[in-house]
């Protein structure tokens, strides 16, 4: 059985993340895959490295899933995130959402990604031609 939440330094599996997720009630499964692109802000990206506060990632994934459940009524949700080095073209994050209708499945996956970028304690360092830099999301501190 595929874990609901996973952080791993191994390559992510787009098939496995959705395996067994939908029920007979569902008419839609959306799988979002975030992949590493070769250009960012005019820089030629070589690879990314992800660091996580692992003990906190799982409770925050739970919090994200609770929000998705409250907001969209979507209960069948999975999040898999890569840590360590991730090369161009590889998947750094997978979100799978199953729902009776496609609209809520799309919205649940989109909202999950937005929340990952806002509150999940994972950071990426971009290694580009000529240097490397921590990529930083919203500068406004999270206080609750």
């Amino acid at each position: 059985m595929t874990e609901r939440f996973r952080i791993t330094s191994d390559p992510l599996d787009e098939q496995a993340v959705a395996e067994g997720l939908s029920t007979s009630e569902d008419g839609a499964v959306v799988v979002f895959s975030g992949i590493v692109r070769a250009r960012n802000k005019g820089r030629k990206v070589l690879h990314l490295e992800y660091e996580a506060y692992e003990a906190m990632v799982y409770p925050v994934f739970e919090r994200v899933a609770e929000g998705v459940s409250r907001r969209f009524g979507v209960e069948r949700l999975r999040i898999h995130h890569r840590i360590g080095r991730v090369d161009i073209g590889e998947s750094s994050v997978l979100v799978a959402a199953a729902s009776p209708h496609r609209g809520t499945a799309f919205e649940a996956a989109r909202h999950t990604m937005n929340e990952i970028k806002r509150i999940v304690p994972i950071w990426k360092r971009e290694f580009f031609e000529g240097g490397d830099v921590w990529v930083e999301g919203p500068k406004e501190p999270v206080t609750e």
Partner: peptide
């Protein structure tokens, strides 16, 4: 824990 702006995804 002190957490700089996160940048997962």
């Amino acid at each position: 824990a002190f957490l700089p702006p996160v940048s997962g995804g």
